[in-house]
């Protein structure tokens, strides 16, 4: 494997976004790119990451190799990379370590780290192709704000999606709160759009602790997409350049 990223920033942010949810996971490398799928310890949420080969310049992977990595250790190594550094990830055929090289843009500093790999026997889950009843795209920062505000009211949020908009409702000991985002197109700045497509109305409850955890990915994408169907896990997607993505799935709470 040899994969070079123009800026370490992307990889730093992806790892930062998932490291509190999953601790040890395999980065599955093959000729289509680097993928990761892992559940949290409670088996409530699942993270699915894809960094396509096109995300890297260049990308080369001759064989399928799983790189079993302790994300806490990887975070320690990635601290040494500046966001604008060129990052190269390298690994041998049957590796004991993964090699990470950080180069300053002005080429006068090269840092090289070897991170020990782990043998991780990870369950792989089949995620069914789902035609979601409702999908809602919104500014990622708005979603983060809503989740963190409502977490102060309650540990759960009910998300209701209709043609009129998407409503987040929390009921707690101190009182209730709700936030509605209505569909709109911002002609000046499409990053501010709220876009809803719906085949049938949806209402589901989710743990805000997990949702606020997913929002650690906010810096990766201007927009976030929520995909919902009644009685299936919510998908929260942060789309990245070159068809790469970071997706979180969250099992619903049993409603009232």
């Amino acid at each position: 494997l040899e994969a070079r990223l123009e800026a370490a920033d992307l990889f730093k942010k992806v790892v930062e976004a998932i490291k509190d949810l999953v601790q040890h996971c395999n980065f599955d490398c093959n000729d289509s790119g680097i993928a990761l799928q892992a559940m949290d310890n409670s088996h409530v949420a699942l993270v699915s990451m894809m960094l396509t080969a096109d995300t890297f310049t260049p990308f080369r992977c001759d064989r399928n190799i799983p790189l079993g990595i302790d994300l806490t250790s990887l975070t320690k190594v990635l601290r040494a990379a500046q966001s604008s550094d060129i990052l190269t990830i390298k690994s041998e055929d049957a590796p004991d370590v993964v090699n990470l090289v950080f180069e300053g843009k002005d080429q006068d500093r090269i840092s090289e780290y070897d991170l020990k790999l782990m043998d991780i026997d990870q369950e792989h889950l089949g995620i069914p192709d789902t035609e979601y009843a409702a999908t809602a795209s919104m500014p990622a920062a708005d979603f983060k704000r809503i989740c963190s505000d409502l977490l102060l009211i309650s540990e759960a949020v009910s998300i209701e999606c209709t043609k009129e908009g998407i409503t987040f409702k929390a009921e707690g000991d101190i009182g209730n709160g709700s936030v509605t985002l209505r569909q709109h197109s911002d002609l000046e700045n499409s990053d501010k759009n709220v876009d809803i497509s719906l085949t049938e109305p949806v209402a589901l409850s989710f743990s805000l602790k997990y949702l606020t955890g997913f929002c650690k990915a906010t810096g990766l994408s201007n927009q976030v997409r929520l995909c919902l169907s009644n009685d299936v896990p919510l998908m929260v997607e942060y789309a990245l350049a070159n068809n790469s993505y970071l997706r979180f799935y969250l099992a619903p709470k049993i409603g009232d």
């Binding site: 409670s42 088996h43 409530v44 792989h124 089949g126």
Partner: peptide, 14 residues
């Protein structure tokens, strides 16, 4: 986690 479903109830092991 009261009232919380598991992701394993929806996605099957491959």
């Amino acid at each position: 986690l009261k009232g919380q479903k598991s992701i394993l109830g929806f996605f099957s092991k491959t």
